[in-house]
Design a protein around this nucleic acid. Structure first.
Lengths: 238, 238
DNA sequence: CTTTTCTCCTTACGACGTAAAGTGTTACCG
DNA sequence: CGGTAACACTTTACGTCGTAAGGAGAAAAG
């Protein structure tokens, strides 16, 4: 519980300043920004106290005078990057505005894929994350979606956005693989499941259909699935 | 790439049997089943090679004669539990059948919450996971959903199911907290953000509305959001 | 029978988060 | 003003992790 209180204080910028002792020469913000940089290039696994300490010119243990632990640092990082999500603009078509909200959040996740790996068991939201949710809720309020339906819609949209971001990150990573790599993988699958097509006719049909969609079909497929799902979901409202 | 081939072999039960040396006295299945038990009680973090080895009466290092590493063991575990998802039944109402598919998968995730933490970067599906996907695709085919729309629908449904499972797991965990814990948490938030209600009127309205829905409103809210989202999504198809 | 392959163990390494104790700095309070 | 408390920072250490490397013994191949 003490960590939860401390976490909320750090999230909302309300941590009491030290009153004695040597002056702090770093800020929590510096640690957070440094850790975000590391996560962006090496993933969440790269965010070790030693790595962050090394980059700011301190030892790992001295970071504990700023944050109570690694988990709290990650929680603050998580809220921090939500500041990058653009606030909704006033647009006549509320469905377009909701879609833009989804794209903005999805794009933030793609720029910082590690965010999707952060545990959702957190003491609460920080201000930036709360702003993002409030932005969506305002769009739904303006569209006169009933109050009782809003949690359903927000929940579904968050679901779609997060999974779409994961898929886009994966799709981009898969694009980096060579044709040889793909051929070997196909061969390996054929070796272990020679009857794949007979067993899974529908999955095979989808794969065949997608292979007619141009180069790197999985990128287009991920994008279509994302915007298509939003469109389907919003079509029901009204 | 060698690990990928080995992984696919293990997933599809096509790993070549050893031809010399002492006979293996364990099976990969035993390791997988043991590891699943550990994950179910202690989470994915509890699945260490030492923990699994200890339970089967071997050292951690000897497990490497069965699986090439911890990641592969987890991949096989992941496919294994997908066998618990019931195959779709023939029902006249295809929307009901799809909803049942979602509930079945969601329930599997809730029984094994660690599955949601398994990295999606895997060499490919195993048979059980492929069966689950094929089951859904067959429902969509029978409902005559256009081939090009099926990836969108499956992607969205997976999204909704996974996030709903996460929320249910969290909701159940939160139910275990005392009223005192909740009061302290509310106080802590009030202390760091005294102007919360003014800043976030829509979020506050939702919280107020949900607090009128009976005890432990977050459990009902998570369930409503799940079934509501499926309903909304399927309503657009036809 | 010798060689090869395999199961299993032992020892060890590098890495991780963080506890505990120590050193030096700054502010508080009597 | 001086002693004490709080604090930034370092050092040392601990327990834990995945897995590399090497060795011993078992079973099959040639």
């Amino acid at each position: 519980m003490e960590d939860a209180v401390r976490t909320l204080e750090l999230l909302w910028g309300k941590a009491p300043a030290p009153r004695r002792g040597p002056n702090q020469t770093l800020t929590v913000d510096q640690l957070v920004t440094t850790a975000i940089g590391i996560a962006d290039s090496a993933g969440l696994k790269g965010v070790t106290m030693r790595a962050v300490g090394n980059e700011v010119g301190r030892t790992a243990m001295s970071l504990y005078t700023y944050v109570p632990g690694r988990e709290v640092l990650i929680t603050v990082m998580h809220d921090h990057v939500h500041a990058e999500v653009p606030a909704p603009r006033k647009v006549a078509d509320w469905r377009k505005a909701v879609t833009a909200w989804c794209v903005g959040l999805r794009d933030m996740y793609v720029r910082h894929p590690w965010v999707l790996e952060v545990s959702q068991a957190r003491p609460g939201f920080g201000p930036h994350e709360q702003d993002v949710l409030e932005g969506l809720l305002r769009l739904l309020a303006r569209a006169e979606v009933p109050l009782a339906v809003r949690p359903t819609v927000t929940s579904a949209l968050y679901s779609i956005v997060r999974e779409a971001a994961k898929r886009k990150v994966e799709a981009l990573a898969e694009s980096a693989q060579s044709a040889e790599w793909w051929a070997e993988r196909g061969k390996a699958l054929q070796a272990v499941a020679p009857d794949f097509a007979e067993r899974y006719p529908e999955s095979t049909a989808i794969a065949r259909h997608q292979s007619t969609q141009g180069p790197q079909p999985w990128i287009k497929a991920a994008e279509d699935a994302f915007t298509g799902a939003i469109t389907l979901l919003l079509a029901s409202l009204e």
